[in-house]
Design a binder for these strands. Structure first.
Length: 492
RNA sequence: GGCGCUAUCGUCUAGGGGUUAGGACGGAAGAUUCUCAAUCUUCAAACACGGGUUCGAUUCCCGUUAGCGCUACCA
């Protein structure tokens, strides 16, 4: 007899999003933790679309979830859709009913959000519905009366429901405090609780790793597993991700920051984004922060998961793209960018620059990438950090920028005029440029900085730019001379 | 309201009966430098509150407070 949940067997975990919106960062983290657990232990990662709520599910949402997961680049081994497994859910529900552990409730469904306030309107069970005899229940059902199927939660004898959570420890709750929750709706569709448990059992899920918002639901799930004659899987609940104001992240309140695609579009590297999310609610406990996927996989364990909610520290009214995100996420992204080989960075930058209308090819980007690698935090920064490499004509800039520190317009003109002569003859390589320009500065009696600044502004159109000689090398003699000429005109 | 969970610098966190309570981001200052970055150094910054237990609690227990979650024929 093979033991299904023997400790030696490989874990089977699942990520079960419900397609009612885009892929949320919280969901993404849940997916990542499941994935890490599966890969760390050589287990199986299952993707299950929990689409039993026909009212709210949309194909657009399914598409956007796949889009987000695709960007993350983490694979899964099996996929299921709950809407294709409804017969199994019903079968499970009726088996529970046949054991006397569920009953038909003929009370009409609550119309709307009367109980939204939460304060009152709660009921644990309805004795009138619960105590209808089986014979009468069968008769009314046969007569076509509609009903929901409810779980008959044991309320006598002070029975306790318990389970051990890998993160939150021993959990105990009085069965009497659990309401008679629904298994089947009056339209015959399974509820989340039923469908989820029936599938977890059937798919032989060994570990359920999900958000802490399900911690108290787990008591109901334990009841279902037991009623269905199954051993409940292991549970591990994750602390929630919250906004700076402490409230749960939501699209309505917090906008696009909660969508995975926002990070993608802003120029996050998926590996950096994953790294960031892992550090929210989990710690390797050795002060490591900048980690590769492999390092995360090796280090991951359920023991490292925290119990308190983590704040995603973004600014509510963000002035810049960068401010939209948690500073740590941005820093981590910059770290990952710096760690990328130039070829790879270049390949990731190219489509962004081209997509924005710049005329660049791979060869050019390969030369530009090392110059901006330490100066960009988001891939999109290539547009503002390297634009002058890609355009024919520099956008207009203030000629006053050409004036060096402790200098004046006359000095700028003098420097530029001399640079034009020097650069016409020197070889466009770092060392010769360095030597020639420094010699020119000495000749002119100006400091090196006073020599370089006017040239930098002339060729880049701004003061802040990559190192001058490397920049000139990439720009080439033609462009350099042309831009110096234009600068001289501005000064005149 | 009921039930449950949580509480270390602004944020993410390490730690744990006796520590100068550690790291990181962000902030400040400095070094370096052709600007900007990167890099390096330094600084400021925390155990929610009240009771216990104990020779000694930030750590263990209880309570308070606060936050969050669940309390749907949503998931």
């Amino acid at each position: 007899m093979p033991e299904i949940h023997s400790s030696s067997s490989k874990p089977r975990v699942r990520f079960a999003p419900s397609p009612t919106g885009f892929l949320h960062v919280g969901s993404a983290r849940t997916f990542i933790f499941n994935w890490l657990y599966a890969r760390h232990n050589g287990g199986t990662m299952i993707l299950r679309i929990d689409d039993t709520d026909v009212e709210r599910n949309t194909q657009a949402s399914v598409d956007s979830i796949f889009e987000g997961l695709k960007w993350l680049g983490l694979s899964w081994d099996e996929v299921y859709k709950q809407s294709e497994r409804i017969e199994w859910h019903r079968k499970t529900a009726w088996a529970i009913f046949e054991k006397g552990l569920a009953y038909r409730d003929f009370t009409p469904a609550h119309t709307g959000d009367a109980e939204k306030s939460g304060a009152q309107g709660t009921w644990l069970f309805n004795p009138r519905a619960r105590e209808v005899s089986r014979a009468e229940s069968d008769r009314r059902a046969a007569a076509g009366e509609s009903f929901a199927l409810r779980f008959r939660v044991p309320r006598e004898g002070g029975q306790m429901v318990r389970f051990t959570d890998a993160v939150y420890g021993e959990q105990v709750k009085a069965a009497a405090d659990i309401e008679d929750f629904a298994l089947l709706r009056s339209d015959g569709m399974p509820t989340y609780h039923l469908a989820s448990c029936a599938d977890d059992a059937d798919l032989r899920i060994s570990h359920i790793i999900r958000g802490q918002d399900h911690l108290t639901n787990t008591f109901k799930h334990v009841l279902i597993f037991e009623a269905a004659g199954c051993t409940p899987p292991q549970f591990a609940h994750l602390p929630l991700l919250v906004a700076p104001d402490g409230t749960k992240l939501s699209k309505r309140r917090h906008g696009p920051v909660v969508s995975v695609t926002t990070y993608r579009d802003a120029g996050f590297l998926p590996e950096a984004f994953i790294n960031f999310l892992c550090l929210l609610g989990w710690s390797p406990k050795n002060d490591r922060e900048n980690m590769t996927l492999q390092e995360l996989t090796d280090a991951f364990s359920l023991e490292g998961i925290n119990r308190s909610n983590a704040v995603v520290n973004f600014k509510e009214p963000a002035a810049t793209l960068e401010e939209t995100f948690d500073p740590k996420a941005v820093w981590l992204n910059a770290e990952h960018i710096r760690g990328l080989p130039v070829e790879e960075l270049s390949a990731r930058l190219l489509p962004i620059a081209r997509g924005s209308g710049f005329n660049v090819d791979g060869a050019k980007m390969l030369r530009v990438a090392p110059l901006i690698r330490e100066r960009i935090k988001l891939l999109r920064d290539v547009l503002t950090a390297a634009d002058f490499f890609f355009v024919d004509e520099l956008p207009p800039y203030d000629p006053a920028e050409l004036v060096p520190q402790k200098g004046n317009a006359a000095m700028a003109s003098k420097v530029l005029a001399r640079a034009r002569e020097v650069l016409a003859g020197v070889e466009f390589k770092h060392d010769p440029l360095d030597q020639a320009l420094r010699a020119a500065a000495q000749e002119l009696g100006v400091k090196a900085g006073q020599m370089f600044q006017p040239i930098r502004v002339a060729v880049c159109g701004r003061k802040n730019a990559p190192p001058l000689f490397e920049t000139l090398e990439v720009l080439g003699r033609g462009t350099t001379l042309k831009r110096i000429e234009q600068a001289l005109h501005k000064l005149a």
